[in-house]
Write a protein that binds this DNA or RNA. Structure first.
Lengths: 193, 193
DNA sequence: TAAATAAAATGACCATTGGTCAGTTTCATA
DNA sequence: TATGAAACTGACCAATGGTCATTTTATTTA
């Protein structure tokens, strides 16, 4: 049973997350004051400092949460489908995330600009779901021309590539919009694996 | 002839740039106050606001300057050499930049985390040198299997790839250090072109 | 070269923000 | 119902961002 204290605690914490998320998305991180966050969350300022060190602490935790959420969603959706090849599976997975961020541009902006690999590593340790991406690669590697020992590095390269190209084309339309960039991005990934 | 006013003006501005650069590098951007910058630069606070809108304004201009500087240096060095192929030329260019940033990690950290494609576009318009990267691609495209119309997109993809992989491996040693990652990065680029 | 004009530089000043902590409220336990 | 523990509060102060009337410096004009 969850005690009342526990429940209240989570309520305050969650309302802080929700308030910070909305403000970071709509006003930007630099333009959001702690005062804005606690006011929107309906808690006292001191409460903020019970849960978070500063603005960048709640930001880190926020994007860790959001990013593992969307990654997990993409993994689950991918597992539900049947594919002819690993290539097809991988591209489906990446496309799922791209389409998601096409609809949630502000979230992409927030996540991508602040998600360090260090944070991702923490997710990789702490969240079982994240392992699934690697497992997908593990399962599929026989279909590829890749040396066994390069799997992790290649996975990294593909995720970095997909991430940075998607970010630029979705947020900045540079060098072109995402729908124009998708074919060449996918062709590139096919060349890599 | 450069007037005395002009000369003084540039001195103040440059001392602000130099101070901000050193502080951003060593203390971090969030931890650096405008007061710190003007104190280090030896000018009054009001002077700062004559030249820059805020902290992020001087940061933008700083990284635009630093990044076009290193890009230009790499281009000049590459032009001095003779290559057997476009592939060789491109990899030399990228390697030059990687080696530079290996020796200047803090600068890479500052630039990469804050260089938006928007800023790069401005450099692309304003600085002739930046065009040279595209020209290198233009000259070399006959050596590749790429369709003519995909040159710009491919250039973009390769630069994004090299940039994000280099950043992670140099700064975070993730997923491995840059010397371990280089072979696979270069192989990947070869596959792409 | 001296006076008038223009431009640049200054730093005291105030509003906003980050962060603290003594006191208060809420909850679990005996 | 009393007691102790934990969560919560918001008044408070130090630090920061940004302004602007005044002063200093450079240029132009007479």
């Amino acid at each position: 049973m969850v005690s009342k204290v526990e429940r209240n605690k989570r309520e305050k914490e969650n309302s802080l997350y929700a308030a910070a998320y909305e403000l970071f998305i709509n006003k930007g991180i630099n333009e959001t004051a702690i005062n804005d966050i606690v006011k929107k969350a309906g808690v006292a300022k001191g409460t903020f400092y019970l849960y978070f060190k500063d603005k960048y602490d709640i930001l880190d935790k926020l994007i860790l949460d959001k990013s593992s959420q969307i990654l997990n969603e993409a993994i689950v959706e991918t597992r539900l489908k049947v594919f002819q090849s690993f290539e097809e599976e991988l591209l489906y997975f990446i496309d799922y995330i791209i389409e998601y961020f096409k609809e949630n541009k502000l979230m992409l902006k927030l996540i991508y600009k602040n998600l360090s690999w260090g944070i991702f590593k923490k997710a990789y340790r702490d969240y079982d779901e994240i392992h699934e991406i690697y497992n997908m690669f593990e399962r599929g590697y026989e279909d590829t021309s890749l040396p066994r020992e390069d799997i992790e590095k290649t996975l990294f390269i593909i995720l970095e590539l997909a991430g940075s190209v998607s970010y630029s084309s979705i947020i900045l339309n540079e060098p072109d919009n995402i729908d124009e960039m998708k074919p060449i991005l996918f062709d590139t990934i096919k060349k890599i694996i």
